[in-house]
Write a protein that binds this DNA or RNA. Structure first.
Length: 462
RNA sequence: UCCUCCUUAGCUCAGUUGGUUAGAGCAUCUGACUGUUAAUCAGAGGGUCGCUAGUUCAAGUCUAGCAGGGGGAGCCA
């Protein structure tokens, strides 16, 4: 007899037929004569109700069928006489793969706080919430590849170990095989990285963008999707030390093409979730955020607002709000300013462009005004910046002079400069924080609850 | 890293101006119930009050330090 997933079984019309399911017990209840077992195998948020006539099973077997236990059930699928489920499985045979002692199993039938579940991240995938989040996370990863493949993009694997910190996106984690207690020293007393594994100082990547640019200037449309590492001491519900980032890079795209792509891409992903994960979204909508599904629909249906940094400053200055941080042309926007624009003033996602060059990265293309660059940030309600991108500076001389202005060591990125020397092309790209997308789509409030095993300052457990 | 709040039973929390034996709900265990839906009902067990030091006749309660966690800020995705 072939095993069937709960997801298929619940849809099955083949009542009267025998099936085998395997999964983990959520609850068992009942009386002397009959037991009801809610069984879940993670294939769907719903459980199959297994009905066991107590007389048909040895006492020891049913005693082990507690919350958390892993069991196999063979039984006849029947229409359920009671409300709550369309079908149920009339058990003929039950085998316990692994019991879960009720007194010590940490997950109970009742709800747990998300903070507590973070402490038992090895068991939290067994909860409804994390089942839903992890299935949605999978669906979003799949949809990312689907979208790009359908639109002629190629998936590039950017290196995870890097020898440069050219983007300056943040503090890095060093990668070394040197003995930390007695590293080889140079005559001046500093560590001699020439003796290290790669013969130079290396770190974990903070961005695959520069490598993606190299590939875009050959394959035209590319994207990366991989882990990214930032050693910043960030303790917020929106930051991780290890997270996943999606970075498309497109030759022959200007900043407007870039915005069009970003908007279309994000809407595709949200729509994909609504079309393919509605069971899980309905659960999250009910348990955590009553406006979740409405908010997702609004994203898909409405055009994003596009305005320049300069226009945003004007709106903020004339808003009549009192700010903790003053608004002035030339300073970066603070969270309170971004939130006002997205949540109060417009009430929908906003794409801000043309920031002052001083507050943006060296590789962004300068506008003819000499003051601003073709940057774009996509700001979302609740989570703030979900995408950061720009048109890239493709002119060799302009890029080089900006690199020199900022004292970026040329020897580290000679290869990046060479792409502008040989067959340069206008191009653009952006980075989408995958976990921030999942935060938005699931309605979860803390980024540690949308990745299976979060890495944050002082926490690398599991 | 800064600001702020929190830490009491397995979980979620209450605990008065410092006062004698620290409570509740859920979970667990025992019993009842012929179809339950986070089943219900009755009973029972369960505590180094985060750790350390101090103030006091007396500390869950006040003070300091440390640890862990939440929220806000910065950095950013």
């Amino acid at each position: 007899m072939q095993q069937i997933k709960v997801r298929e079984l619940l849809k099955s019309k083949e009542t009267g037929k025998e099936f085998m399911v395997k999964g983990w017990v959520r609850t068992r209840r009942g009386n002397k004569n009959i037991n009801f077992i809610a069984l879940n195998d993670g294939s769907i948020i719903h459980n199959i109700q297994v009905v066991a006539e107590v007389a048909n099973f040895p006492e020891e077997t049913l005693k082990l069928v507690n919350t958390g236990a892993c069991i196999m059930v063979k039984g006849i699928l029947v229409e359920s006489p009671a409300a709550g489920q369309p079908v149920e499985l009339q058990a003929k045979e039950i085998h316990v793969y692994g019991s879960a002692e009720p007194e010590t199993y940490p997950l109970q039938k009742k709800g747990h706080s998300l903070e507590f579940l973070r402490e038992i991240a090895h068991l939290r995938p067994r909860t409804n919430t994390f089942g839903a989040v992890l299935r949605i996370r999978h669906a979003m990863a799949f949809a990312v590849h689907q979208y790009f493949n359908d639109n002629g993009f190629y998936y590039i694997h950017a290196p995870i170990i890097t020898g440069s910190d050219a983007e300056g996106a943040g503090a890095m984690f060093r990668v070394t095989t040197l003995d930390a207690s007695k590293p080889p020293l140079k005559p001046d007393g500093t560590v001699d990285f020439a003796e290290d594994f790669f013969g130079k100082e290396t770190n974990l990547t903070v961005s695959g963008q520069l490598e993606a640019e190299l590939a875009a200037l050959a394959l035209s449309l590319v994207y990366t999707f991989g882990p990214t590492f930032r050693a910043e001491n960030s303790n917020t519900p929106r930051h991780l030390a290890e997270f996943w980032m999606i970075e498309p890079e497109m030759a022959f795209f200007d900043i407007n093409d870039n915005m069009d792509l970003a908007e279309d891409f994000v809407k595709y992903l949200v729509k994909y979730a609504l079309d393919n994960c509605l069971d899980d979204l309905e659960f999250l909508n009910k348990m955590y955020d009553n406006e979740l599904i409405d908010r997702l629909r609004q994203i898909v249906e409405n055009k994003f607002i596009r305005l320049t940094y300069t226009e945003a400053i004007t709106i903020l200055k004339s808003s009549g709000q009192t700010w903790e941080f003053p608004v002035d042309w030339g300073t970066d926007l603070q969270s309170e300013h971004e939130r006002y624009l997205v949540e109060k003033h417009f009430g929908k996602p906003v794409i801000l462009t043309d920031y002052p060059k001083e507050i943006k990265a060296f590789y962004m293309k300068q506008n003819s005004d000499g003051k601003t660059v073709r940057a774009m940030d996509v700001l979302f309600p609740k989570i703030g910046e979900i995408i950061g991108g720009s048109q890239r500076e493709e002119n060799y001389d302009s890029l080089l002079s900006r690199i020199r202005e900022l004292n970026i060591p040329e020897k580290d990125i000679w290869w990046y400069l060479e792409t502008r020397k040989f067959g340069t092309a206008p191009h653009s790209g952006f980075g989408l924080g995958f976990e921030r997308l999942i935060l938005f789509v699931t309605g979860m409030a803390n980024i540690r609850d949308v990745i299976p095993f979060p890495r944050t300052p002082k926490n690398a457990e599991f």
